[in-house]
């Protein structure tokens, strides 16, 4: 097997460079549909229209504009749009190394594997060094006309680059105020903690399946063969009134499950 590299690049760290290839680490498993005209099942297209005249507007004739206020636009021309683009470059420049805890989960957007592109020893030595030092690199690069920030990290013996969202895209928890109210009862806190403890385990991602996606797949296959799917059953759940009573009951249940 093997995946195709999507980009060839050079890692720049201080005065060292390491040639790498970039591979997507995430793969699209979504089921893709086409929109069809119901009467003849012909794939639907979309056309751009001017709503005032109802005429089709060809792509070349469109202009880009930013809506500064509702229905008030500033139009940018091609030159202005292009002037904001970063210079093309093959460099993935690591600017600093940090403790991984500085990178909030909220920032992670898309993971890539880096593979060696020649100079294998340097590649694997760098991955090993990141692991022994317990650091991640903050890297910047430009790919297909767009600038990225990412976290360079060791994944087993390999290197991984995780594209991060820019700071402007994130709403940090620190800028929000948590809900307030009367102090929580110590007993309830303790019960809740015990319940979390009782339900604690290892993160085994393979235990979770995209059930809905699989059922859509099954439905497609069944329909292809002219069959239908059996209906599923519904199990209602009691609502909770008293917090501590519910916690106690839950604990009891969790304990039983564990013992059983």
């Amino acid at each position: 097997m093997g995946a195709r590299a999507i980009w060839k690049a050079e890692l720049h760290l201080g005065e060292e460079t390491v040639p790498v290839k970039l591979y997507s680490a995430a793969q699209d498993r979504n089921i893709h549909f086409k929109l069809l005209h119901e009467v003849d099942h012909v794939p639907i297209q979309q056309r751009r229209v001017n709503p005032l005249t109802d005429e089709t507007v060809p792509y070349e004739a469109t202009r880009r504009a930013y809506e500064v206020q509702r229905d008030l636009f500033v139009v940018l021309d091609e030159g202005e749009l292009a002037s904001a683009q970063p210079e093309p470059s093959r460099a993935i420049t690591v600017t600093r190394f940090v403790d991984p805890s500085l990178i909030n989960h909220q920032w992670y957007e898309r993971p890539y594997y880096l593979g060696p592109d020649g100079h294998e020893e340097d590649y694997f030595a760098l991955a090993e060094a990141l692991a022994t030092q317990g650091r991640e690199g903050v890297a910047r690069w430009t790919m297909r006309g767009k600038g990225y920030v990412g976290a360079l990290r060791a994944e087993g013996p390999y290197l991984m680059l995780i594209a991060l969202r820019s700071a402007d895209e994130i709403i940090p928890a620190a800028e929000l105020e948590p809900p307030s109210g009367r102090a929580l009862a110590k007993e309830e806190l303790k019960l809740a903690e015990q319940l979390v403890e009782a339900l604690s385990g290892e993160f085994r991602p393979e235990d979770f399946r995209d059930e809905y996606r699989h059922r859509v797949q099954e439905l497609i296959e069944a329909k292809q063969e002219g069959k239908s799917l059996p209906a599923r059953t519904y199990e209602p759940q009691p609502a909770s009134d008293s917090l501590s009573a519910s916690l106690k009951a839950s604990l009891k249940k969790a304990g039983l499950k564990r013992a059983g």
Binding site: D40, Q45, Q46, R47, Y66, F73, Q106, S166
Partner: peptide, 27 residues
């Protein structure tokens, strides 16, 4: 997350924002 930061609209030559219509090429 606030999604991507700058979002441009597509305008018709006369400045009206374009709309998209579903279109059947057969019909």
């Amino acid at each position: 997350t606030r999604s991507s930061t700058v979002h441009f609209r597509m305008l018709s030559p006369d400045g009206t924002p374009v709309r998209r219509r579903y279109y059947c090429p057969e019909h």
